[in-house]
């Protein structure tokens, strides 16, 4: 079974390489060897995404979380630098959506404090120690 999987993956690799070689020259021919504005734009967006992901990775909280899960931060950064444009875009989009998740934590804290206050005022009695 393992052998079969391996041979399939070899085939896939071969396919990817041939496709890469087959498509590259035609792409070059299409823009006559000029560096186009759209290429510069995607490059620009790529480096912006990379900067965003790296800034995220540099946060102490994130590094702590990674370390707790046995991930070496420097290794992670090296891997990120090697991601494709689309992958990086995906990651950066997810970071954009993260604040909602962090907010959920904040909301939890807010609820907790709110209930403590109600306890103090004698409306509820969830925290008998207070």
């Amino acid at each position: 079974m393992k052998k079969a999987i391996r041979s399939v993956s070899v085939w896939m690799l071969a396919l990817v390489f041939t496709a890469g070689i087959a498509f590259q020259p035609s792409a070059m021919a299409a823009n006559e060897g000029m560096v186009t504005t759209q290429q510069l734009l995607s490059q620009q967006q790529h480096s912006e995404n990379l900067a965003k992901v790296n800034a995220f990775m540099s946060q102490e909280k994130v590094q702590q979380m990674l370390t707790e899960r046995g991930v070496n931060v420097e290794d992670a950064k090296t891997r990120i630098a090697g991601l494709s444009g689309a992958e990086l875009e995906q990651l950066s989009l997810q970071i954009d959506e993260l604040p909602a998740g962090q907010g959920a934590l904040g909301f939890l804290l807010f609820l907790l404090v709110f209930f403590m206050l109600l306890d103090i005022a004698g409306v509820t009695d969830i925290f008998p120690g207070v």
Binding site: P99, A100, Q102, G103, A104, G106, F107
Partner: peptide, 14 residues
Amino acid sequence: PVLVMQNLGLKSLP
């Protein structure tokens, strides 16, 4: 004039 976006709710309840 400047087009702006606001979150009038909470972060978790936008």
